[in-house]
């Protein structure tokens, strides 16, 4: 039972980590607070659902198509809106303005989905066999989710660590003013963060659609969790987002096994508040990073 709880917690946490890492890329580089992030996941989920239902396209193909679509959306948003906004607005104002822009975008995306597809939940079956190993029994889709999250996050980390372009993005996240002086291509870093950030959200949605009913309003909770996780781990800190995601995933499974399911939110937000009281910059955030 303990093994089951921990493993399930890790699979849930891995998806949270995927969402948080992508949210953090967008925030870390551009200081944009994307409260429409969960809605991008929703778009990915619908893409996966409709492709499977209408054209028999298996979800693992959608794992490529959904991020392509949402990544393109990210590119268009950056070129069409945020490139201009970031030139005109600076400092704390970016965060406030972006919050509202994304609130507007979120309204448009959510309600368009609700107009097009109605609020009816949709679902399909795939990877729904049960796999047993070492006293653990889980649905295949959980394993697939775990694998996809690990591969995707691994790819992002590898890019940031080993490629010269990634180095630039990382430098930008760590120190914006200095990186511009040393001649890092800021426009590339921003474009990269927009495309990859949005693409990973779409990917997460395509994965989630395998085991959770798809609705126009499914994104909200993922946005909230995403923000809690990146604040917990430290804004702009990619590793912090991964650990934060796993912590919240484990709180949701093992944590409520110890306290009771009705304490789920008290537990998550309680830990969140407590961490910020002790470390106002998050678990792995740098002092004065705000």
């Amino acid at each position: 039972m303990i093994a089951q709880l921990v493993f399930v917690g890790l699979t849930t946490g891995a998806i949270y980590a995927l969402i948080a890492v992508s949210l953090n890329l967008i925030y870390g580089t551009m200081r944009l607070l994307n409260i429409g992030h969960g809605d991008m996941a929703m778009v990915g989920a619908y893409i996966s659902f409709w492709l499977f239902t209408l054209a028999d396209v298996p979800p693992y193909v959608s794992f490529l198509i959904a991020p392509a679509v949402s990544g393109l959306f990210g590119l268009l948003l950056y070129r069409g809106m945020f490139a201009g906004l970031l030139r005109r607005v600076q400092g704390d104002a970016v965060e406030g303005s972006s919050l509202l822009v994304f609130f507007g975008i979120s309204m448009v995306v959510q309600n368009s989905a609700s107009l097009l597809f109605s609020g009816t939940p949709r679902a399909y079956r795939y990877f729904d066999g049960i796999v047993e190993f070492g006293g653990i029994a889980v649905t295949e889709s959980r394993l697939v989710a775990l694998a996809v999250a690990v591969v995707a996050i691994g790819a992002v980390l590898a890019f940031l660590k080993f490629s010269i372009w990634g180095l630039g993005v990382r430098a930008l996240i760590q120190n914006r003013a200095a990186s511009a002086i040393v001649g890092i291509n800021v426009d590339f870093a921003f474009t990269f963060a927009s495309v990859v950030g949005f693409a990973l959200a779409g990917l997460a949605g395509a994965v989630i659609s395998m085991y959770q009913a798809v609705t126009p309003f499914m994104g909200g909770p993922y946005t909230t969790v995403g923000f809690v996780v990146i604040i917990l781990g430290g804004l702009g800190n990619i590793n912090g987002a991964i650990i934060g995601g796993l912590v919240v995933g484990l709180l949701e499974t093992a944590g409520i096994a110890l306290t009771g399911p009705n304490f789920r939110d008290l537990l998550i937000y309680g830990v969140f508040i407590a961490v910020l009281m002790l470390r106002p910059q998050g678990l792995f955030g740098r002092k004065g990073a705000h």
Partner: peptide, 30 residues
């Protein structure tokens, strides 16, 4: 305690506090 943190940390912290109070009341009522 909340006003010791700034910027986006404060934004999300106040969201967290509001959700905490909400679920506390839900549990009390239940």
């Amino acid at each position: 305690p909340c006003l010791r943190v700034r910027g986006p940390y404060f934004v999300i912290l106040t969201l967290g506090v509001a959700e905490f109070v909400k679920y506390a009341v839900i549990n009390i009522e239940a």
